[in-house]
Design a binder for these strands. Structure first.
Lengths: 233, 233
DNA sequence: CTCCTTAGAGAGCAGTGCTCACAAACAGGA
DNA sequence: TCCTGTTTGTGAGCACTGCTCTCTAAGGAG
């Protein structure tokens, strides 16, 4: 194994990403349904069977795209959230939410790839876990900061059943040390609300009620901030 | 046109539902991806081209399944909710939520059909709207009852921007007359939370945090009940 | 009984994912 | 430098898909 990659390895890397790029192009243009290995091969001027030297199956190609999508979303959210001064906890939450929504609207097919219905029989492989949790990590940090600064208001809510308390504890130790499980349980509620709302907007379930969804989105983000006890501003 | 259906019409109706039944069987067994007109035809002992006398395309068959799924969900939720005494507003909300979740877990492929990513290029046709709103109607009624009985507590929340107020007003006149738009806006938040949570559970996004999700579900339902100002019990 | 509509059959088209045997190109050791 | 084993790319081929077309054979209404 050499630090200088061989010509073969370089070519392989290049073709691998060329295939992914063309695959992504097709998914964006026509949705994952119509992603076709043969047409990728055609576009790249190679035999369709050659693709299989790079991805063992169509599903594996899709999985690669999913990982990239998770990473892209994570990076986008990290970016917008990082531009908010650390002490403005609520603004950081708002930035996180806006980041998710903006990314989702700009790259709806990739969003659908991650948060839409999983392909039947498809089990998310190990390697999706880390990129998938990037956004959650941002939320965890923001809560930890708020808690450490003593800025999280007490919120009246149902007490936690022991199993849930334990689960929340587990999440805490993973991404938000010291934050009480009551807060994390409610954060999980806010979390599912956020993605539920974005999914509904993108998948057309808000047509006829809150579409366009800009103001509704802002309102919901505020409600959830209150639910988590984030400071007023 | 006769009240007595002709033999031909009877045969058509029967075959239409036989096709749908076999299609549903396949979707449940292997997911919508693998639904194949040819294998339906094979299973029914007919030529594949004959299917097209009943459904102009594969997508149309899927649309028919989607409508059935909406109706099935609506009926299930209406049923469990109707067994709760009318005056227990909070219990009715809990029943609604439990009904959605139970149905979703029992018929996850059909749930994915409705709330998963829509097929690209697919626009929900007119005829899906009515069955799609059955569950929403249940929620609307429950809120209207609570409001009429003066049981909805005031909840402190961000004020509504004019556009959202108008949208909420529209929803109100459709399914929950007289209920103030503030309440309905928050109900929409609860609504998206509910389906976001169920989707996350079904699609595996809670693995590693709140899985199994029973207690988390109960907690979230309670939080959302509070958000809407539903009475304590 | 006639005539028109409709249901079904079967061949065929263009496309798919994926496999396999084969031939080049490459990489590293002798 | 040659030689050998591994990688890459090829093209034919299999079994399948959605969908269209033409043709035949059954209803059903007058």
């Amino acid at each position: 194994m050499n630090a200088v990659r061989t010509a073969r390895q370089r070519a392989r890397d290049e073709l691998t990403s060329a295939i992914k790029a063309e695959a992504l192009r097709q998914v964006v243009a026509e949705g994952p349904q119509r992603l076709s290995l043969r047409s990728i091969a055609r576009e790249l001027g190679m035999a369709s069977s050659a693709i299989y030297r790079y991805f063992p199956s169509r599903d594996d190609l899709l999985t690669a795209l999913i990982i990239d999508a998770y990473d892209s979303l994570g990076a986008a959210v990290e970016d917008v959230e990082s531009h908010v001064p650390r002490e403005y906890i609520r603004a950081r939450w708002q930035a996180l939410c806006a980041g998710v929504r903006t990314w989702a609207r700009q790259r709806s097919q990739e969003y659908a790839l991650i948060f839409g219905s999983p392909v039947p029989g498809y089990r998310a492989p190990e390697e999706t876990i880390a990129p998938a949790s990037r956004v959650a990590v941002v939320l965890g940090k923001l809560l930890a900061d708020g808690w450490a600064a003593g800025e999280l208001r007490q919120v009246q809510a149902p007490p936690l059943r022991p199993g849930l308390a334990e689960q929340a504890e587990g999440v805490a130790t993973a991404i938000a040390p010291d934050v009480p499980s009551e807060v994390l349980a409610r954060a999980l509620v806010a979390w599912t609300q956020l993605f539920g709302m974005v999914s509904f907007e993108l998948f057309g379930h808000l047509v006829g009620s809150a579409d366009p969804a800009d103001e509704f989105f802002e309102h919901a983000v505020g409600c959830m901030a209150d639910l988590m006890g984030l400071p007023a501003e």
